[in-house]
Amino acid sequence: MNETVVVVGGGYGGAAVAAALDEHADVVLVEPKDAFVHSAGALRALVRPDWAPNMFFRYDRLLTRGRVVRARAASVDAGGVTLESGERIEAGHIVLASGSGYPYPAKMRTDVADEALAQLRGTHEELAKAGRVLITGAGPVGLELAGEIKAVWPDKRVTVVDPAERLVPAFADEMRADLHRQLDERGIEVRLGTALSEPPPVEPGRARTFTVDGITADIWFRAHGVAVQTSYLGADLAAARTPEGRIRVTETLNVEGFPNVYALGDVTDLDEAKMAGYAMKHAEVVAANIAARVRGEEPAATYAPSPIPSVLLPLGPDRGVGQFPGPDGPLVVSAETVADYKGRDLFVGRFAELFKTAEPLSAPLPEPSAEPLPQPPSEPSAEPTAEPVDVG
C-alpha cells in the first residue's frame, strides 16, 4: 500500500494531524500560506499590532520526515491530489482539512504573513481614528472583537447588532447572564433583533462616518458569513458533500464511502460549532486511524460531538465567559478562568510547541504563567470561523 499521507490544508487540524503522523508515514502537507495563522489571535492583532506577529508560525520545523508543499489543491480524488501547477501527488491516505473562509480581520485576506501584518497595521490605524464602531454579528467573533476594542480604547463607542433575539442561545442561561453583565460593564451596546436594511456605504475596516438605520458610526466590521472551502473535491469525493458544502463523515472521520480519505475541522458535517479545539480533537482521531492502517491494523478511533457545547470567549485579556461539559450538565466558568486559560496569551505557547519554535514569526512570546494550569474538561480554542450563533 502507498503509505504517503497527503493533508490538504495546514490550519489547526491539518497541522496537528500532519505532525502526529510524521513518524508513521510519508507526510505531505499542502498549504498555500507561507506561515501558519493562529486565527484565534486575529482580533487582538488588530487592536495591538505590536502583538500581531504572535499569530504567525513558520512551517519549516513542523515536520521532520515529511514535507510542506506551498501550493493550492486544484482537485482531490480518492487516489491523490492535483495542484494548481498541474503537479500530481499520489496518496494512499488523504486528509481533507481545508477549513473555511470568514470576513477580515477574523481571517486574513492574503497567504503572505508580511502582507497580512501590513494590512492589520493599516486597519489598526483606521480603527484608532474612529470614535464610534459598528459590528454586525453578535456571535462570539463579534463580541470578542468588541471586547478587544474596548480593552484598548475604553472611550470608543461600540455597537453590535444582530437579528437574533438572544446571545449565544446554545449556552447556559447562567453564562448568558454573565456575558450580558460583562458587556454592560465594558460599555458595549448590543442591539438584538436588529438587521441592517442595507450595508454601510463604506467597506469594512475603513474609517468614514456614515449613518444606517439610525446608527451613526465611523468604522464598521462584519462578523458573520462563513464560507466552507470544499470546491476542489473531485467527482468521486464530491458525492459526499452536503448541499451546504460540508463533507459527510463516519464516526471514524472517514469521508462516507472512502476508507482511505478522512475529513476534519470546519469542512465536516458534524453537528457542533466549528472551532479550532474541535478540529484538533478530530486530528487525534484521524492520526490514530491512519497510523493503524499503516501498521496493517483496523482503525478503531471514533469521534462523537458532545451534546453540551463548549466555549472560551474572551472579552479582552482579562474578561470573558466560558462553558464546558460537566458531569451534571454545563459547567460555567468565571472571567478569571477564561483569562487564565485563554484570554491573556490566546494559546500562543501551545502553538510554539507544535511548530517547534521558541518564538513566532518575529516577536517574543508572552511570559509563561508561573504555575501550569490544569486542563479543562474540553478546551476549544476559538477559531473564528463560524456563523454568529456559533462559537467561532
Rank of each mutant, 00 (worst) to 15 (best):
L361S: 05
G142V: 01
V261M: 09
D22Q: 03
F324W: 04
R58A: 14
A40M: 14
S369C: 04
G13H: 01
F57W: 04
Y278G: 07
G131V: 08
V95L: 11
R67T: 13
M175A: 11
V7Q: 01
E371A: 15
I247E: 01
S85T: 15
P377W: 12
L237N: 04
D213Q: 07
A73T: 00
E272F: 02
R166I: 02
G225H: 03
S381H: 13
G316S: 06
I188G: 09
T230P: 00
G326T: 10
D318F: 07
Y102P: 03
D155V: 09
A40S: 13
P384H: 10
R295L: 10
R88K: 12
E31P: 01
R295Q: 14
G10T: 01
D184P: 02
T64F: 06
V261E: 04
R350Y: 11
Y104T: 14
D390N: 12
T209P: 06
G193V: 08
T385N: 12
G92D: 05
Q182M: 10
G13A: 02
K107N: 08
A78T: 05
A283R: 01
R48H: 11
T230K: 00
N2D: 15
E126C: 07
R88W: 04
E87T: 14
E336P: 03
V17S: 00
A238S: 14
P105E: 09
D184L: 11
E379A: 12
E244M: 10
L117V: 10
D26P: 04
A239F: 05
R241E: 11
E165C: 03
V7D: 00
S39G: 06
G147L: 01
D184S: 13
P372S: 05
A113W: 04
L167A: 02
D340Y: 08
I89N: 03
L373D: 07
E298L: 11
P103G: 09
H224I: 08
A177H: 11
R191T: 05
R186K: 14
H38K: 12
K107P: 08
H224L: 14
E379V: 07
D318G: 10
E189H: 09
V69S: 01
A73E: 00
S334N: 09
L365S: 06
R222M: 10
D178N: 12
G187C: 08
Y262T: 11
D60A: 12
D77Q: 01
E115I: 10
Y104V: 13
Q323I: 03
V391T: 13
G66L: 02
V7Y: 00
Y102D: 03
G322C: 03
R121V: 08
A35Q: 08
